[in-house]
Design a protein around this nucleic acid. Structure first.
Length: 479
RNA sequence: UCCCUGAUAGCUCAAUGGUAGAGCGACCGGCUGUUAACCGGUAGGUUCCAGGUUCGAGUCCUGGUCGGGGAGCCA
């Protein structure tokens, strides 16, 4: 008997003895043929569980009859073509042919097992996150998450990018992307004080204030300016009090950075990247994607195929503002007004990508006052804009909104210094970032992409807390 | 953090201020190469927490806690 994953079993020609090891999904019983149990067993390798048809001649048949959802079993039997409808092959377990069911772990009190053989809400399953992965949906999400992770690395590896492990703990408070979590070993009940009465971080572990990273971008730019094409892919932490279906306190971010690269090429890589990931899920996990299309977001497959087949629409911010203003003039209602220089609201972004263009849209060249200090200042009059713009881009997709934010970086030291001064940032903290502009500066560009948002986009799942194994969010760090 | 909304059986939800209900799940039985099975029965409740109003509160009021939808921040 060779032990096969269900995934392998489904592609193996019938007629051979096999062993399956996994967890019971369902158990149905029949009195026919002297007693039969139909035990569906899942080991997580495939979307479908495999049906084991257990004959009444097994010595422990009485125990098999009592198997309930969640029990762990090892099944020896013959891989055969199914006599019933609903599956192509199944495992026939007949003691006359050496069939056996070994029960590894029972569910001792089935009435207390949290994952019943019925529909559950995602909100409830979140409370049993240690067991929710045993359901169809969360198993499929886990497989897609892995598939996309591998696709990320393959995409960049195939293009000569190097994966850079930027630090999780940072002593820099200038990453500039939101509230940070403090990292400290000080006794919080008895903090050391400076003469001014403030906390004395010179006595802390790192001898200075330190935090969890909110972005690897500044660090990865250093490697970019030596290895040319690099990316980060790792955990990122934001202590914002965000309570939405699109935000996590701990999430995984992908940040490529390319030397000798301008904004247009940056946007081309971003488009290729998204299409590559979508294609990977569609071709490698068709069963899981079919499930998402049928049960999670009807029309998902058509939506994703449309994304693959259509070039992303590139549009200057200045044009986008005109389109939204035109729509308002024609009677389209928005809660917020739009004028050149103001940031677009979620409702405006969704209008552009979901209603006006009905496809992914890349907005480019934003007013400098609403973007970060490191973004490259455009020449005056770019896109006919009435004010200064920077070489920034946001990739907007239906359902999610902003999925990627990127820019060409300011490589000219005098321009960078002016921006740091204008925004009243602590110039001294940026000494090593400024060095990159002093020693062999080059035009370079990159972008950031929230991995969980990519998973939402690809699976059609609604809540970001359901596409990461153990979500961390305000008031939520169980498990 | 702001606005709206919700919390009742293991789960999903009902219940005019007046005896707490159903479906599913679990358990027992029947039927069946079954597959969201079907049919019959049994068990299962501190109605989120703390106060208050009332003869009487699941229901009304106040304050919390947690969830959901939207917004902001963003990825």
């Amino acid at each position: 008997m060779s032990w096969l994953s269900t995934k392998t079993a489904f592609t193996t020609p019938p007629g051979c003895p096999i062993t399956i090891k996994g967890w019971v999904r369902t158990n149905r019983e029949s009195k026919a043929e002297g007693g039969l149990c139909f035990v569906a067993v899942s080991d997580g390798s495939s979307f479908d569980a495999i049906q084991c048809v257990v004959k009444g001649n097994l010595s422990n048949f009485a125990e098999v009859q009592k198997l309930t959802t969640g029990c762990a079993v090892e099944v020896d039997g013959q891989l055969v073509q199914s006599q019933g409808k609903g599956q192509s092959v199944e495992v026939l377990v007949d003691s006359a042919q050496g069939g056996a069911v070994r029960i590894s772990g029972l569910v001792e009190h089935p009435d207390t097992y949290p994952v019943q053989n019925k529909r559950h809400t995602f909100e409830y399953l979140r409370e049993v996150a240690h067991l929710r992965v045993r359901t169809n949906t969360f198993g499929a999400v886990a497989r897609v998450r892995h598939c996309l992770s591998m696709a990320v690395h393959r995409f960049f590896h195939e293009r000569g990018f190097f994966w850079v492990h930027t630090p999780i703990i940072t002593g820099s408070d200038c990453e500039g992307a939101g509230q940070m979590f403090r990292v400290s070993t000080l006794d919080q009940m008895n903090l050391p004080r400076t003469p001014e009465g403030k906390c004395d971080y010179t006595q802390d572990f790192f001898g200075k204030e330190s935090h969890l990273t909110v972005s690897g971008q500044l660090n990865v730019e250093t490697y970019c300016c030596a290895l040319s094409n690099v990316y980060t892919f790792g955990p990122t932490f934001r202590a914002e009090n965000s309570n939405t279906a699109r935000h996590l306190a701990e999430f995984w971010m992908i940040e490529p950075e390319m030397a000798f690269c301008d904004l247009m090429r940056d946007s081309q890589i971003a488009e290729e990247f998204i299409k590559y990931c979508v294609n990977a899920a569609l071709t490698q996990l068709p069963d899981d994607m079919k499930f998402f299309d049928e049960r999670i977001e009807p029309g998902l497959l058509a939506r994703l195929k449309h994304v693959l087949d259509t070039p992303f629409r590139r549009l200057p911010y200045t044009e986008a503002v005109k389109i939204i203003q035109d729509a308002m003039a024609k009677g389209k209602k928005f809660e917020f007004q739009v004028k050149w220089g103001s940031d677009l609201q979620t409702e405006h972004e969704r209008y552009l990508t979901e209603e006006h263009f009905k496809q992914p849209v890349i907005l480019m060249n934003y007013p400098k006052q609403i973007k970060a200090f490191y973004m490259r200042l455009n020449d005056p009059g770019t896109d006919g804009a009435p004010g200064d713009t920077v070489a920034a881009m946001d990739v907007l997709v239906p359902k999610i909104g902003e999925i990627i934010g990127g820019s060409q970086r300011e490589e000219r030291l005098d321009y960078l210094d002016r921006r740091i001064e204008e925004m009243k940032l602590p110039a001294k903290e940026y000494w090593w970032y400024r060095d990159l502009r002093r020693y062999g500066t080059v035009p370079h560009a990159g972008f950031g992409l929230g991995f969980e948002r990519l998973i939402l986009f690809v699976t059609g799942m609604q809540n970001i807390r359901d596409v990461i194994p153990f979500p961390r969010a305000p008031k939520q760090a169980e498990f």
